[in-house]
């Protein structure tokens, strides 16, 4: 535990002093505010030219109330969250290779496994911070633009769904750490997650029957953002997500522990 604590403190300092932490939080906040703006436009279509592109985008939202607004937030965390969390993981692991600092972490009294686990702890804390930013800024934006039919009970329920969707998304993002370590940088993990997002869309549109078994489609299905399939999720889907996360962690630890570090 001494090693894990030391590694965690070291990782915290690295993240705290990086600009990336704040940039990602700002990007997520910006996305939430933009979604709020779209919702606001769809609530007040007369505010801008009816033929404008923005109006066209806003019109797909249909009737706006808090429950449809929550679904929008679920979509953000399931889709953009996957990209954002993956970027965070790529940065935490890939930076050691692109900054060429990894060699300073390999022959220390702290085991490499503890170094990797401390990085995963930082990843999880960072991703939770992002999910809280999205949710609470989303709520704040919704209140400011005066979305109708507020309900405290519905908000608590939405928070629960949002939290579990975030947790599932974080778990399916963890294999990105392996690709960042294997690819020794950012390119491979980012490429991997883009490929995964394309495959997820293909599966969702073309062969929805296997979506509950495809790890990266499961968070969206759970949130209900993709439609009523949520009710079709069986225990096996949650097990698949859990083992995807475990595979990501063990694969990364094994890579750091056993692969040649040139």
């Amino acid at each position: 535990m001494k090693g894990l604590y030391a590694a965690f403190l070291a990782e915290s300092l690295k993240v705290w002093r990086s600009k990336i932490l704040w940039i990602i939080i700002l990007v997520f906040a910006f996305i939430v505010v933009m979604i709020g703006l779209l919702v606001f436009i769809s609530m007040h279509p007369g505010l801008i030219n009816s033929s404008s592109l923005l109006n066209a985008k806003a019109s797909f939202l249909g009737t706006v109330d808090w429950s449809s607004y929550f679904v929008l937030l679920y979509q953000i965390i399931a889709a953009i969250g996957l990209m954002g969390f993956s970027f965070v993981i790529s940065w935490i692991f890939g930076r050691e290779y692109s900054d060429r600092t990894v060699k300073d972490l390999l022959s220390l009294p702290v085991s490499r496994s503890m170094i990797v686990i401390s990085k995963f702890i930082i990843v999880i804390i960072w991703c939770i911070l992002l999910f809280l930013v999205i949710f609470f800024l989303g709520i704040l934006t919704g209140i400011i633009i005066k979305i109708p039919d507020w309900s405290g009970e519905a908000t608590i329920h939405a928070f629960l769904i949002f939290s579990i969707t975030s947790l599932l998304t974080i778990l399916v993002s963890l294999p990105v750490a392996f690709f960042a370590s294997w690819g020794r940088g950012y390119l491979l993990p980012i490429g991997f997650i883009i490929l995964i997002m394309i495959i997820t869309q293909f599966i969702a549109a073309g062969i929805p029957g296997i979506a509950p078994f495809f790890p990266w489609a499961i968070p969206t299905l759970y949130s209900g953002a993709a439609g009523p399939e949520k009710s079709h999720l069986e225990v096996i889907s949650y097990i698949i997500v859990f083992f995807t996360g475990i595979a990501g962690i063990t694969g990364t630890v094994a890579w750091w522990r056993f692969a040649d570090q040139n």
Partner: peptide, 8 residues
Amino acid sequence: IPYSYPDL
């Protein structure tokens, strides 16, 4: 070549 964390 020794490298260090550039932001630190």
